[in-house]
Design a protein around this nucleic acid. Sequence first.
RNA 1: GGGGCCGUAGUUCAGCUGGUUAGAACGCCGGCCUGUCACGCCGGAAGUCGCGAGUUCGAUCCUCGUCGGCCCCGCCA
Length: 599
Amino acid sequence: MLICTPTPNSRRKRMKRTDYCGALTAAQNEKEVTLAGWVHRRRDHGGLIFIDLRDREGLVQVVFNPQLSEAIHQRAHQLRSEFVIQVNGKVMRRPAGTENKDLPTGEVEVHASDLEILNPSLTPPFSIEEEKEPSETLRLQYRYLDLRRRSVQTNFILRHNLSKAIRRFLDQHQFLEIETPFLTKSTPEGARDFLVPSRMNAGQFYALPQSPQLFKQILMVSGFDRYYQIVRCFRDEDLRADRQPEFTQIDIEMSFIEREDILSLMEEMVRTVLKEVRGIHLESPFPRMTYQEAMSRFGVDKPDLRFGLELKDLSDIAARSEFKVFRDAVEKKGLVKGINAKGLATLSRKELEELTQEATGRGAKGLAWMKATPEGLEAPIAKFFKPEMLQEIAQRLEAAPGDLLLFVADREKVVYEVLGHLRLVIGRRLNLIDPKALKLLWVTDFPLLEYDDAEKRYVAMHHPFTSPMDEDIPLLATDPLRARAKAYDIVLNGTEIGGGSIRIHQNEVQSKMFELLGITKEEAEAKFGFLLQALQYGAPPHGGIAFGFDRLTAILAGVDSIRDVIAFPKTQKGICLMTNAPSEVDPRQLKELHIKPTE
RNA sequence: GGGGCCGUAGUUCAGCUGGUUAGAACGCCGGCCUGUCACGCCGGAAGUCGCGAGUUCGAUCCUCGUCGGCCCCGCCA
């Protein structure tokens, strides 16, 4: 129950706020100010009462002194955490020796001459102060209180500053911000669509966009030349720390350009924005790596370059060894690769077992290991290798006494998956990752297609509108899986923060692509007819990129989940704990929408 | 669909091998306090141990189920 009622409106003097609490310094000494904000903390001495008053910009100490006004002091006794108040008073330097160096406003305080309680507050379910982090469940349930916390607010201020800087950069480079529909057409391929029933068209549905991909290409056909949008996208897939059903992309498209133009301009954008928002100077140019190289050296297409521990190929040695597991792998056109876990020869049997489980959990049949000692490599499997082979292995992995060498022999895909993962696990375990480092790179030359074992057909690795490399176009007819795409990703600290491609702008190539993907002419016509048609009316060569704005912000904010940079995110089950969405609806609504529940 | 971790005062947590009345800190309520700033001192209230079954003389603790949160695999062109 509220124990105190607000000051009646009729009694309010309606003085306007003059300053932010957090902005007061000795420069405002002796100024009469009106402040408004939340009671952050009170220190009631019976006589003097100190209040830390908080607003968006920070805290300032307000002093209520009975000698200044007995009535106001009495009223201040009622104050509790999170009451909303307005205070009139005079900014004063604090008495010598009572300054608070930990507070930006700590040189001054406000001597209150008037106090209005604009609104009392229930005792909040958790403290707005920072000492202890409430559980995420509680934070999301009371998100409006969570968003009052300083550490949370700074994430959103950062987000704002990033989008502001990005808009400014793109504006300066002649990009036009153009909005595209949220109620649009469901398309095959890609993620599951969120559907919106059409009341006026029984049995028909809009889909929320997975991205404005097709529209931005159409805008290029329209001649807008340079487009961008910071825009919400929707994908009905399972959630992760870095995946929400609705998320924000910085969506960009340009005409009359080649890959190089996009990479260099986007690189400039990232550098400019980080400089502006974070004062960070990034070395230029960013490293570049083909997909092939990234996979072979790091096992993933989004390598974390903050540490080494690269994968080394040992297939040639493995083929000559007596170790059946290794030889079989190579003979079956697989691979044997290893990494050097520096200094981990001391791992116990149990810890090795845990690493093995990490490996088998990702599809490996086992995890082979050797320990480097001053006498050479030692392991149960060492007996299958001639001494000079062991030496060769040690050399290739730059083994020093005390190191642990880990090997995986399998199909290429498994070897990369497992060692790529182990590399991250070990990098973390060995504390090789500098949390402050920002390591960016471009990964280029992605394969155009992948083979989907379940569906028994090719699927586009990026999307069906991605142009193949010119020199690989003949491969589409002979060996499609070897064809490379004009596609690129930008990677920051092991996270893909953006990706794009040069698009197909010729109808024939686009039709050929659909054919490869097993999309019939009729399907293509029904699903993408508008694009195919547009491509026949003078489509300029074009290409673009989309950044995951939430992921980028999260990394720069130093948080592990994009939930921390989204004001009202959803839980892993896609539920908003604050509003309790999704929820059931009135049967009449369903009827209007021509929808009948199946259960 | 699958694997893992978690759920105990308002909050963050502790709670031994299953055994007295389930604790601490912060917060909250009351009292005292004129230089505090994580104010201090005195006192007080506060628990469906997520929920439901089972095992047991006895369950916060063990088992099964279920609900919720988190991490991951699958999925995410």
